[in-house]
């Protein structure tokens, strides 16, 4: 069990490195908006979502209503529902309370790293929790740090830190694209997502592109099998 925990922490290390500049940037922006480190920390504990948190602060800044923010986050983070559904296949033997704790740590990054690991290993709660909790802690700490240091941090671009998120997603794409069909499905999803953004679906593009592309993927798979 101890080895599984250490393995989980090791696997979360690149996630932590990627989260650090993002979390720092979020803390700075939230502090500029007027949030204190406690509020930033609470938000990172409860939301644990880069996209969700940046959008929330951006919307508060322009004075969006409570309901508008809730609906937008529901759309922007709706991919977690799909991730959760996909993870149910690995959570079969776990009691509900454990499912609750594990799924609370779902992000794009922890989801892909966990599912990639479970392709060759049995789902282990200790590994999974270590991965999620370490990643979550790094997110919480870096956002709080950002809120404390505020504008004292140097220009992120000098260190390439602004590219941490795209670089992480590029790796996640290659980790999830196991075969040609998945690569094609992904490319279609990316292009369709661009198309939706172009037509103003900037909150729902990810969900819509995923729903359409995954359906296309299944249809192609069935069609090829026949």
């Amino acid at each position: 069990m101890k080895e599984k925990i250490i393995l989980g922490m090791k696997k979360s290390l690149p996630i932590c490195i990627g989260y650090f500049p993002l979390g720092l940037a979020f803390g700075v922006i939230a502090q500029n908006y007027g949030m204190n480190p406690f509020e930033v920390g609470l938000m990172s504990i409860l939301l644990f979502s880069g996209s969700g948190q940046f959008i929330t602060v951006a919307m508060m800044t322009i004075g969006a209503s409570f309901l508008t923010i809730l609906i937008t986050i529901l759309l922007v983070n709706s991919r977690y529902m799909l991730f959760s559904a996909a993870l149910s296949l690995h959570l079969k033997k776990f009691p509900s309370w454990l499912v609750g704790i594990i799924t609370a740590g779902i992000t794009d990054e922890t989801f892909v790293v966990a599912t990639t690991h479970f392709k060759e290993n049995k789902p282990e709660a200790s590994f999974w929790l270590a991965l999620n909790v370490t990643s979550h802690l790094s997110w919480i700490c870096s956002t709080i740090l950002g809120a404390f240091v505020g504008n004292f941090i140097p220009n992120m671009e000098t260190f390439g830190l602004n590219f941490a998120l795209p670089a992480m997603f590029i790796a996640l794409f290659f980790m999830t694209a196991e075969n040609k069909l998945m690569v094609s499905t992904g490319i279609f999803a990316g292009i369709f997502s661009m198309f939706l953004i172009n037509f103003g679906f900037t909150d729902s593009n990810i969900l819509l592109a995923t729903l359409v592309a995954a359906t296309l993927g299944v249809v192609l798979k069935r069609w090829k099998a026949n």
Binding site: A86, D108, F188, G190, A209
Partner: peptide, 10 residues
Amino acid sequence: FVPVATIAAL
């Protein structure tokens, strides 16, 4: 197909 599609869309 959900993971690869979501990541690409992002």
